[in-house]
Design a protein around this nucleic acid. Sequence first.
DNA 1: GTCTATAACTCGATAGAC
DNA 2: GTCTATCGAGTTATAGAC
Lengths: 187, 187
Amino acid sequence: MASKGEKTRSDIIVCAKNLFYQRGYEATSFTDIVNASGFFRGNIYHYFKTKDEILEAVIQQRQTDIRTGLAYWDAQYADPKARLNAFVSMVARSSELTEYGCPIGSLNTELGKERRELQDEARVLFDLFRHWLAQQFVALGYEDKAETMSLHLLGRAQGIAVIAQVYHDADVLKRETQMLAEWVREL
Amino acid sequence: MASKGEKTRSDIIVCAKNLFYQRGYEATSFTDIVNASGFFRGNIYHYFKTKDEILEAVIQQRQTDIRTGLAYWDAQYADPKARLNAFVSMVARSSELTEYGCPIGSLNTELGKERRELQDEARVLFDLFRHWLAQQFVALGYEDKAETMSLHLLGRAQGIAVIAQVYHDADVLKRETQMLAEWVREL
DNA sequence: GTCTATAACTCGATAGAC
DNA sequence: GTCTATCGAGTTATAGAC
């Protein structure tokens, strides 16, 4: 069983993950995390020395979340197209997308400007999906185009997320993801 | 002729525009603007009461820039497809895209999280392109689908920008914009 | 009276001593 | 866990120059 400290640590990470997503990394203050988590300042400092360190832990957590999700899809669906559909469905079903955009995309967009060291870690979140999607394209017989197709699909999903958030519009999210599902179907 | 103050004001706006683009709005401090512009603190406050007000002026400036650009394309190209190509070419040619992402998209992504009042102004930048693109689709005979096609094209461009910035990769920018140009060609 | 220049204030965040 | 120092953010005040 996990120690008490493990739980405290992961509680802090969950709080920070939500705040970074909903407000952005720069816009989230250390005090915001203190208030939202309910812990005392010094207590949080015991686990993380800086805000940057919290972000690193959040990114680690997101990596774990994604690996778990991809493994679940691997177990759930044998057919590569069914797996690609699972990916598109995830985008279509995410109601928070119209509020805060894609958690991975918006994080990379922010960090990619002038926090490159941190973006190097956040980019891994894209790589996880990228490699997994490429595997599906390979399985469908697109060996030599798998990587470019994977980036294309990721890009389409990101574009949908941006527009859906800009207009805070669930309809455009639905419409565009249907088009993306159509693209998968025609493979 | 414009007064001296007019020039100072527009110099401040240009500096802030670049900084907000390259670093993000939250990540840019007032001191950053002071240092980059070379003006004195108090001098900048003579022209703008708050940092938010500087951003509003920057967005106004971007609106003007876009209107000018669209008017130029209208004058330059009579054919709707040629105009759509001009739009796609702009994306393909923007070398800064792989560094800092789309200036309009990344700004909206940031402001859309928890600065909705400001995003309401930044969204206009999208609307300008959206309306103009829709006009071209109408001219091509897609009256009833013009609006959705416009959002689709904008989304594709945004997705390309995100991926190009995440991987800081000019190749993917080139490849994906070629695909987008192909999509325009097949209309 | 507009613009420039300098100074100083408030506030909250980070950090670390106790 | 509390308390306090320090720093930097955004902002305001005001004196001098054109």
